[in-house]
C-alpha cells in the first residue's frame, strides 16, 4: 500500500511533504504535552506504536495472488487521535523505507499522509460519530479501525490517480483502476483489523487504568456492567 520510491513525480511528492510535516510536528508537540501531563501515558503510547509495528509487518497473501498488509492505525486513532498517530506511523514508514525497500523516502510524505494522517482521521471521526449512536462501543471500535484501514488505501489510490491521470477518463478513470488493485485484498484485511483492534480495546477497557480521559467513561460503564 506504500507508494514505491521515486514513483511520485513533482510537484506531488513535495506537496504531500508540505501537507504532512506540520501535522507530524503538531503530533510531536501533543505527545510531549501528553507525557508531561501524565508520564504513565508513555506505556499506552508505546503500545499503540507497537500495534502499528506488528500489524504493518504482516504481509498477507490474498486471493488475487497479491499481498497486502493491515495498517494497525485504528487503535492509536481511537486512543490518541490522528496527529499523534501520524508520528507513530512515520516511524514505521521510515523503518520500512530504509531497511525493507518498502515505500520510499521521496514518497514518505505521501505515505504518511495516507497511512498516518487521513486514514486515522477517518477512523477517529468514525469513532466519534459511532460512539454517539446506539451502536455500542464494540461495533464503534470495529467500524473505526476498519474505516482507518480502508480509507488509507483509498487515499493511496487517489494520490496515484492525481499523479498519473489516464489519457482517456483522467483522474477518475485512474482512481478506479488503482482502487481495483487494492480493494480486493484490502476489504478482508480491514475486517480482520477491525476485529483485532476490538480485541485489544476490550482488554484495555477491562484493565481500565491509563486510558485517556475521553475514554474513561467507557471503562467505568464496563466495570458497572460487570458488577451487575
Amino acid at each position: 500500500m506504500h507508494i514505491a520510491e521515486g514513483f511520485l513525480p513533482g510537484p506531488w511528492w513535495y506537496l504531500w511533504f508540505l501537507f504532512t510535516i506540520p501535522v507530524v510536528a503538531y503530533g510531536l508537540a501533543r505527545i510531549r504535552r501528553t507525557i508531561e501531563e501524565d508520564p504513565s501515558k508513555k506505556t499506552l503510547l508505546a503500545m499503540a506504536g507497537a500495534f502499528i509495528f506488528v500489524l504493518s509487518s504482516l504481509k498477507l497473501p490474498s486471493v488475487a495472488g497479491s499481498s497486502s498488509h493491515p495498517t494497525g492505525t485504528g487503535l492509536s486513532a481511537i486512543l490518541f487521535g490522528p496527529s499523534v498517530t501520524s508520528v507513530l506511523s512515520i516511524i514505521v514508514l521510515i523503518y520500512q523505507a530504509l531497511l525493507l525497500a518498502h515505500g520510499g523516502l521521496t514518497t514518505l510524505g505521501a505515505n504518511t499522509a495516507s497511512m498516518g494522517i487521513i486514514g486515522p482521521l477517518v477512523g477517529w471521526l468514525t469513532w466519534k460519530a459511532a460512539e454517539k449512536t446506539p451502536l455500542g462501543t464494540d461495533l464503534s471500535v470495529f467500524l473505526a479501525a476498519a474505516a482507518a484501514d480502508l480509507s488509507t488505501y483509498m487515499v493511496t489510490s487517489l494520490q496515484l490517480a492525481l499523479a498519473f491521470p489516464a489519457k482517456t477518463g483522467g483522474v477518475l478513470a485512474s482512481f478506479k483502476a488503482f482502487m481495483a488493485v487494492f480493494a480486493l485484498t484490502q476489504v478482508p484485511l480491514a475486517l480482520a483489523e477491525g476485529l483485532l483492534t476490538l480485541y485489544v480495546m476490550r482488554t484495555l477497557f477491562k484493565l481500565g487504568t491509563g486510558l485517556p480521559e475521553h475514554l474513561k467513561h467507557l471503562q467505568r460503564s464496563a466495570a458497572a456492567g460487570e458488577a451487575l
Binding site: G6, P9, S66, T106, S174, A177
Partner: peptide, 27 residues
C-alpha cells in the same frame, strides 16, 4: 506472498503512462 499490491500499482503506472514513466529516485 508473491507479487504485492505495491508492485501491481507500479505495473499499472506503466500501463497508464504507456511505459513513459521512469522513477526518479532509487532505494
Amino acid at each position: 506472498a508473491k507479487t504485492g499490491t505495491d508492485d501491481r500499482a507500479v505495473n499499472l503506472i506503466g500501463d497508464i503512462t504507456e511505459g513513459g514513466y521512469t522513477p526518479w529516485a532509487e532505494h
